[in-house]
Amino acid sequence: METKLKGKTVFVTDALRNFGTPMALAFAREGANLFLATLSDQAQLEHTARAVASLGVKAVTGLCDLSNAAQVEATVHKCMAELGHVDVVINNVLFPVPAHAFGTVPFEVWKRKIEVELTGSFFLFKAVLPRMMTQQWGRIINFTGLEALQGTDALAGSTELGMVGMTRGIAREYGKYNITANCIGAGGIETEEAEGRLAFPPGTRDPLNRWGKPEEIAFLAVSLASEDAGYVTGQCMMANGGKYFL
């Protein structure tokens, strides 16, 4: 598949979490340069950056709390300064909170998760979209999950469907600039538990009775970011072993 991603810049948020590392490597194999942002541990992110750089592309890292608008703008500015543009955003943001029964979710915890994941994404796109508009090209990839569809976790489910709403909004509002926005709805991936997320282990009633691999999600992201995915926007692409059909 000719993705035409060579020389593009891919900005990955929360690059240590979720599918961040396999995602970065998958884009690097396509010849894209990477900006890897993290909320937590920049030192650890250097490992990923080195692995990315070993594939012959540029990799820059930055510390960024998405819920801080000034930090987000500064981080996107750094990406522009060092890599020249921002073409693809892999919005991997995740503020993991153990699943609670709804009645026991503290309001402060609820608010913080929304602040990081939804308001943080709002800040991110405010910083990124003007740059994409200028270059008349952009790909935004957000993440949703099974919790949103199945109602298995009020906290995760709310922010995940919120991301679907935001994706549709960006898709409608910025399509005219040749910017697409889509969601990947992963579920039943082998890294879920390690990430502090609700895990969806394989079951005999699942069409695909095995764990999914982060690399499979990365492949989907690369595909959505590719030149020929330019007519796909506002969609949710499910990758969950068939646990839920949209």
Binding site: L149, G151, T152, A154, G157, S158, G162, M166, E173
Partner: peptide, 18 residues
């Protein structure tokens, strides 16, 4: 599709969980 209604979709996630 409207960014301003992100919260309304999130409320759908909340509703499903309840």
């Amino acid at each position: 599709g409207s960014t301003g209604t992100t919260a309304k979709m999130a409320a759908e996630g909340l509703t499903r969980a309840i």
